[in-house]
Design a protein around this nucleic acid. Structure first.
Lengths: 358, 358
DNA sequence: GAGTGGTTTCTTGTCGATGAAGTAAACAGT
DNA sequence: ACTGTTTACTTCATCGACAAGAAACCACTC
């Protein structure tokens, strides 16, 4: 081999007859330089095809410029094993992720996903290694961890809002979501409501709170509401299991006396859609006999029969906004943290009507 | 300020009374070291809380080890603006991406998404800056670009297979997909088939080829087949437009004389689902009057009425496999490139039957 | 006991890009 | 001519890793 060694800054400097530092400074526009020297340096650079080693560049800048190197990359940490959940391509993560992608594309940033590392060490390695400019976090360990993270690097919490942590967050207005959905049904005359929620879902806690709030505030003495937890649901895509589960619940509901029977259901879209299917099979008419309101407004809600009325969380907007907030924080680290709460809206379709007359 | 400067390797060396190189070597297990020296070094490290600057570390290793640094990160380039397409959370990209995420999680790698940069410069910056260990590419410019990329960095092409480029690829068996779907319908007795395909879709070219191949090979003289291109469809999520489009097509189909009328349709899931809805509105019974086969097997296919028979492309598997292939290439750069083609399968549900008797 | 060969242990010097600090010269104003 | 200011460039220091070399040590032989 002729050993085509990559030229370093010293080679350029030697060829141009100046010191390495001069080359560096001229290339970085830190130094105007005389016309002649400048010309010689540029010439030498082009002749040797010199390009500074970006790795060294970053390393030196990191130290000298007080750690303010831009990698043009942010990371997205999900503490709920995004890669598994993402298998439910219709869901949740895909939509948030899609919003995030749109955001980073707009800001010309890259997005780093590194699923598992956070559980092993307490702090993800790309944070320790300073290879990203900021972090988006879904979910979030404990207060101490979040504060440590926020101290080290610009951070924005996505979907969850931690009031005790002094960091950016962008989250949906869950209280309003539940309030609006319930109010919608109650206003139509429904007085016997059933909410179904997988015990381990993301919304579960917020749901319980929101429901409590609604039913304690609104003065509806004769309104009955029941919350039923769904158990054993780990992979929402497992269709057969879900189908069976839905049939069981549908039969359970049908078997109740008309007075006791709920006239309206509220649950996540895929459960709602499964129930729609189960009702169809059992000959229970929707919405005439029972109204169904979904939660999430998945694409499938459009194509079911009847089309599913569903509450749409602003998931994509959450992702995009979170990126914007984070990038602003990166640009100005001293900016006070913001807590942004985005409202969703109920998409009215065909699975809801007034309750059946007794 | 007490200036809590981060300790460098020199500080450790001084405290331990050895040279910096000794510290480095002991820390990297390049040197056994005498028990005494070793103890002093370790002690000094723990006392100062020393950790090598990972940026410098990478930079130096990059040079000395002949560019064989592991960042434990691979990148995914999509030349079709993934962030826009991903908005169709149900689709395509989400599923491939989900497979990719599963793959990188398994290999304990990170995934870097950087949507737009590839169009600006010819070569994405994270390749030039050697910040990733490999690249997954969806789509792909031209032969020269692909060869240049392959030369620089381990690469695996996803979804598309470029026979002329000497690089890894993982792609679906489109020919088989179309063949199986068509054969399924023909075997049931259908002789008048209609395929609908958006002119700008990913599958379009492959679809045309696959159809030609099937109908020229299979000896079905009385079989009529028509391919209709859908135009103006850019954002598959635009429901109102799609709905209107579907109604138009459904009316068009219904207006034909029974002899001329196609008895089976083949098209992408969201078009198929929209058509199912349009048929329902127009009182055309599926599958009694017309059979519908979808393509993609989205989640929504489960919840439509009737449930949609659809061809499932192995999208998630493509993503996962592509990552595996790429990681193997990274581990052994001299490994000959592989072209993997994965078969999908037809998921039979309720939207297909034998054709109506005349 | 001194010389020889071999191994282990540790140091010196180098790599790369850059900012801080320093030098030398030109230049302007009084 | 003296002083202050700007300009042009150099020297120095910095990070971590490693090749190459120095130094110390051991084993064995004559």
């Amino acid at each position: 081999m002729t050993a085509p060694k990559k030229p370093g800054i010293r080679d350029v400097a030697q060829l141009a007859g100046v010191s390495p530092a001069t080359v560096s400074q001229i290339l970085n526009n830190k130094l105007k330089g005389s016309t002649e020297t400048r010309r010689r340096v540029i010439e030498a650079v082009t002749e040797l095809g010199y390009a500074p080693d970006p790795l060294y560049r970053d390393a030196v800048l990191q130290r000298n410029a007080g750690g303010r190197v831009r990698h043009q990359v942010i990371a997205f940490i999900s503490l709920e094993n995004i890669h598994e959940q993402a298998a439910a391509a219709d869901g949740f993560y895909s939509l948030i992720l899609s919003g995030i992608q749109r955001g980073v594309a707009k800001g010309n940033y890259g997005l780093l996903l590194k699923p598992s590392s956070v559980h092993q060490d307490l702090m993800p390695d790309f944070v320790l290694e300073k290879k990203v400019d900021g972090v988006l976090v879904e979910g979030g360990f404990n207060d101490a961890w979040r504060e440590e993270l926020t101290r080290r690097i610009p951070t924005c919490f996505v979907f969850n809002s931690f009031s005790r942590t002094n960091a950016n967050s962008v989250s949906p207005n869950m209280a309003k979501a539940i309030h609006d959905s319930m109010e919608y049904l109650v206003d139509l005359g429904h007085r016997n409501l059933l909410t179904l929620s997988p015990a381990r879902s993301h919304h579960h806690q917020a749901l319980i709170q929101g429901l409590d709030q609604f039913f304690s505030q609104s003065n509806l003495p004769r309104c009955q509401h029941q919350l039923e937890e769904l158990h054993g649901i780990t992979t929402p895509n497992h269709d057969a299991f879900l189908h069976e589960y839905a049939r069981k619940i549908a039969r359970q509901i049908r078997s109740k006396k008309p007075g006791q029977r709920p006239t309206a259901l509220f649950t996540g879209d895929i459960y709602a859609l499964s129930l729609l299917r189960a009702f169809r099979e059992l000959g229970v008419r929707v919405p005439e006999e029972i109204s169904v309101v979904g939660f999430d407004d998945t694409l499938a809600a459009l194509y079911s029969d009847p089309q599913l009325t569903s509450y749409r969380l602003p998931l994509t907007a959450i992702g995009t906004t979170a990126v914007e907030v984070l990038l602003q924080q990166i640009d100005d680290p001293d900016r006070p943290p913001r807590h942004i709460i985005l409202d969703g809206k109920l998409i009215e379709r065909a699975s809801v009507s007034t309750p059946p007359q007794p």
